[in-house]
Every structure is written in C-alpha cells, then in structure tokens.
Design a protein around this nucleic acid. Structure first.
Lengths: 192, 192
DNA sequence: CGATTCTTTGAAAACAGTCAATCTGTGTGG
DNA sequence: CCACACAGATTGACTGTTTTCAAAGAATCG
C-alpha cells in the first residue's frame, strides 16, 4: 500500500530512501469496505488521509437526512477535515467509502513533523494547497453562475472518469441539484 | 501605507525590523479610485495584492455581461488570481475597487523570495492558505445546500459588516441569486 | 431469485429569474 | 442651490426552472 504512495510522491518530488523510510515509519494503513466510514460527523479528525486505492466521498448530512457531497476522492487524492483538524473540534462532515478502498493515514503531528524535516515535502504540500484553492474557486464559480444543465455538462467534461464511477444521484448531490432534475437534464442532453 | 501591512503582520507573526525592511524594499503601492481596475480579464496576474484600505471585489463577467462575484476583499485581506499567477496565462477574472482603496503589491517572485528568506512568513502564508481552503469549502457547502433565503441570512450573520458596505445587488451576485429575488427575500425576512 | 439501490417519469407546487416600470437617494455640474 | 442624471432598490406580472412526492422500471448484488 505504501508503494502506491511512494510512486505518487516520486512523480512530484525527489526524495531519498531515507526520507521514504521516515514517512513510512509514521504511516498507518486502513482498508475500508464499501459504505464504511473513515470519519463520522461528531468525530474529531486527526488524520490526513491519502487514497491509495478505491474511492471516497466527503459529505455533509443535513437535518432532513439529505447528503451534500463536498468532494469526491479517488486514488491519489488527499482528504480529511482541515477545519476539525486545526480546531480540534468535532467534524460536521462524513467521509465514507463508495468502493472498497485502501487508505494511508498520517496523524496531524506526524504530518507536520515530515513537513518540518523534509523541505521538499513542505514545498510540495504548499503547492498542493494552492492548487486546491484554484479548484475550489472554480467550483464556486460554476456553482453561482451555471444552470443545472451547464453544471452537469461541465462536470462530465471535467471529470469523465468520475461520471462513470459513481451513481448519478451522487453527482446530483455534488452539484447541488436534485437527482430527478439531473436525470431529466441528462436525458435532454443525450438527445442532442 | 506600509504601516497598515506591518501592523497586520505584527499581529500574526514575530519579525525583526530587518525582515520588515526586506519586505518593504520589494513592496509597491497603488491607490485605486472607486470603479478602477486592479486586474482586468485578459491581463496576466503578476502580483499578490494586500488591501490596506478600502474595498475590492474579485469577479467573473460572463458573455451576457453578468458579473459573478467570487470574493469581497476588505482591508487586511489578500487577493489576486492564483491560477493566472501560477500558469502565466491571462486571467478570466476582474478585480476592481468598490471604494477608494490603497493596495500593497508584491510581485510573485518577490513574494516567493520573502517566503524563502523568512521562515516565519512562509509558515504564516501556509496557515493562511489552509484557512482559506476552509472558508471556500464552507461557501461551497452553502452554495449546494441552501435556498436563496438561507444563503442571505447566513451571509448577513457571517459578514454583517460587509452587508452594510456593499449594494444589495452585489451580495446577490456573490450568492448566485438575482438582485430581485434577494430584494424580496430580504423584505420577507425583515417582516418576521 | 428477492432485496436493495438506482434511475426514470409524471404531475403539481414551490422557487427563482426576467422584464419593465417605478421609486429612492446621492452626487455632480450648471 | 437646484435640476438632472445615475445607481440602486423595489414591485408586479409573467415565465421558466427546479423541487417534491409518488410510483414504476432497471440494474445490481448477495
């Protein structure tokens, strides 16, 4: 499982074997079955999670039981509730597995330790944060400007692989549209 | 103008006079009149901008001429188009002044230089990025889950001072709601 | 298979957007 | 100091989009 993570890192930065040993020494691993929680609302988030294999979702469940997906997390992506991690307060979000998954976990403190010890890793994390901001901003743009139909076609264009991998009602939830509307929107657009 | 920035930094991190000298030596300043652009779509963004005084907006103008506000930027906040800055490509966004403003500008390269030279500054920037992500994420949550009315009351609750400072139609644009709808929503909610 | 999850469809209702007109307040130039 | 222009807010009538609820079909999985 660590090998996947190592390959991911090798692609981005140049680290020594010693660096990898350090990282490995503080990594822990977790297998999740489909539907299993990685983080449940009410828990404090203490980990940065890296998906080696599988597929997670990061979502909010409101009072009416409706779920609003904040993030899809396929292999080679990070997740975790930064807010809860920084504050030490319980999370309002849930993270669970959409597919059987293999997760690498780095405790907050270990993660910070790695950043301090390995400058290249620190730079890489900063870069990743910056890119993440661009992505979130783009999503806000879509969210405040686009109709349901535009949101859907934009999503399919941008994340074709996710489109094939998750049920339609989850894409609806991610886009902030009802499942019925998205079903109609999609049948419209395939007619063209 | 630099004094405002210095006070802002002193509040967050401990720097030496020498550090401040360094920062000051690469800072440039700009006064903007109301309605004046700091960045116009099509330009490449080369600066990180810090608002010392006044109020900016960061927005997208679509083909129909409609404006979608991505960010309000009051004093003591940063702005700039990260995407354009990282890629070197023209920006799709505009930044202009809602009030007469005073801006401190740090060229991309100088900003990076400061980060490399002053570790505390680097840490501070990273922290700011992290917090920014939390804020953006929260906005996405609101955007995909809330009705127009909930969006408005949430906004007023969270940013009461901005509510008094910008015209209603700009709040509407920020929330992704038409100005007319927001006007109705508001008159409803004041009746209660 | 039987159960569950997912998708589709229909009809009604709620919600939000558009267009146009009016009203308000503000500030600028004569 | 007034008149006028202008930006902003409000209102009404209408249209269009999206949600909701309910039911029925697919598809998938143990």
């Amino acid at each position: 499982m660590f090998e996947t993570f190592r390959k991911y890192l090798e692609d981005k930065i140049a680290l020594t074997d010693q660096d990898y040993e350090l990282i490995k020494s503080v990594s822990s691993f977790k297998k999740l079955r489909k539907r299993q929680y990685l983080l449940q609302a009410g828990d404090v988030c203490r980990f940065n999670a890296f998906v080696c294999k599988g597929f997670l979702r990061y979502y909010y469940a409101d009072e009416k039981g409706q779920e609003h997906i904040m993030q899809f997390v396929p292999e080679n992506y990070w997740t975790g509730d930064r807010e809860s991690m920084d504050s030490g307060l319980p999370s309002k979000y849930n993270i669970d597995a959409i597919e059987d998954s293999e997760i690498l976990l780095l405790k907050k403190e270990d993660f910070e330790m790695i950043r301090k010890t390995i400058p290249a890793f620190n730079n890489f994390v900063n870069d990743t944060l910056r890119k993440n901001i661009v992505v979130l901003q783009e999503r806000i743009h879509v969210s405040i400007s686009f109709s349901a139909e535009e949101k859907y076609s934009n999503f399919i264009l941008k994340y074709p692989s996710i489109g094939n991998r998750v049920p339609l009602h989850m894409i609806a939830s991610y886009l902030g549209v009802s499942a019925e509307t998205l079903s109609r929107v999609r049948s419209q657009s395939t007619k063209k």
